[in-house]
């Protein structure tokens, strides 16, 4: 390769094209760094806020087994947030600044977590559908071009399949139970199906950043490609459970070997993105409150560490 004739930016693109991972201290275009910080921190915020809808049911889980499982899952989501904040910090972002941006409403997180969790069946649906959609988004990110992000995603993906299976098991139990239980499962699917399809983001035509992100190999599939995969994967699973996907346009298309399906309510999507989701305020308030309530702990721990350091110094002198 005649690198001498290439600009720094062309050399960077050549490394990307050759599937060489970019590491924290490597030269990178400012726009690549900014795009990654935005995407990784949004992803981290989603994991963090994502604990709230499920946290809502920990004390009301129907058995000790379900409670332990849900607790472990929610703890995993906290871990996912931490892996991702740590990856964003390798790009020079500060943890406090990222959290401040989340709390002020400046930073976004996945719109799915702004919907309420009304019944126990929502715990099943979230694990099965929402974590299922997350897996489809996340598996290609294990090969994303930025090393620390890719490595964080490998860890995340290893844990996600437990999330999806526990959710599916909840659904299966409800669907094999009393008619009222099965109805509860159906109602949960009816409420979560469309918001889950929104998780893949706007239509390709309305996603101006996709092209650049694909070129930088941050993204490896477009939003619509992933949405299609998701529908093709989930419809047979819903059939297995004996549940009806709430979409009257849903139909197998023999030619494309995939399902045709109805259009998402994009007005609703943009409204939730703008912060007008049914639980948007509540979620953000809960986050801010948790952060503020923890302030004294952060201060006390620093003071304690400082005191111990001084004591050790005095003892050594």
């Amino acid at each position: 390769m005649e690198t001498a004739e290439l600009t720094q930016e062309e050399q960077f693109q050549a490394r990307i094209d050759a599937d060489v991972r970019i590491e924290p201290k490597d030269w990178m275009p400012e726009a690549y760094r900014k795009t990654l910080i935005r995407q990784i921190s949004q992803h981290a915020h989603s994991e963090l806020v994502g604990m709230l809808p499920e946290g809502n049911w920990i004390t009301r889980a129907p058995s000790l087994k379900r409670k332990s499982i849900l607790l472990a899952k929610v703890q995993d989501e906290a871990g996912h947030g931490l892996y991702l904040y740590s990856a964003a910090e390798t790009l020079g972002a500060s943890r406090d600044q990222m959290l401040a941006d989340l709390h002020s409403g400046k930073a976004k997180y996945s719109s799915i977590f702004n919907y309420p969790t009304l019944s126990w069946a929502d715990m099943g649906t979230i694990g099965w559908l929402v974590d299922g959609a997350a897996i489809l988004n996340q598996v290609p990110l294990c090969r994303t071009s930025y090393g620390p992000y890719a490595r964080a995603m490998v860890r995340v993906c290893k844990e996600e399949s437990f999330h999806q299976r526990q959710g599916f098991e909840i659904m299966q139990t409800l669907c094999e139970g009393a008619p009222a239980q099965k109805q509860m499962a159906q109602e949960a699917l009816n409420r979560w199906w469309w918001p889950t399809l929104m998780m893949f983001g706007p239509k390709d035509a309305d996603s101006p950043n996709t092209e650049q992100s694909m070129k930088w190999r941050i993204k490896r599939f477009t939003n619509d490609e992933l949405r299609q995969k998701f529908v093709d994967m989930m419809v047979p699973q819903a059939e297995f459970l004996g549940l009806t996907v709430p979409d009257d346009k849903l139909q197998w298309n023999e030619t494309k070997q995939g399902y045709d399906f109805g259009d998402v309510d994009w007005a609703e999507f943009w409204d939730v993105v703008k912060g007008n989701g049914p639980c948007s305020r509540e979620r953000l308030q809960a986050r801010v409150q948790a952060h503020e309530d923890g302030a004294w702990v952060r201060e006390a721990a620093l003071a304690h560490a400082e005191k111990r350091r001084q004591r050790a110094e005095t003892a050594a002198a």
Partner: peptide, 30 residues
């Protein structure tokens, strides 16, 4: 407080006989 807890790099030995490997970072007071 405006002060962030310091950042730490974490290395883990996955099993006896293998070396410690960098896994990521976290914040902690000490």
């Amino acid at each position: 407080s405006q002060k962030e807890w310091p950042l730490w790099e974490v290395f883990i030995r996955s099993k006896q006989g293998l070396d410690h490997k960098h896994v990521g970072s976290l914040h902690a007071a000490d």
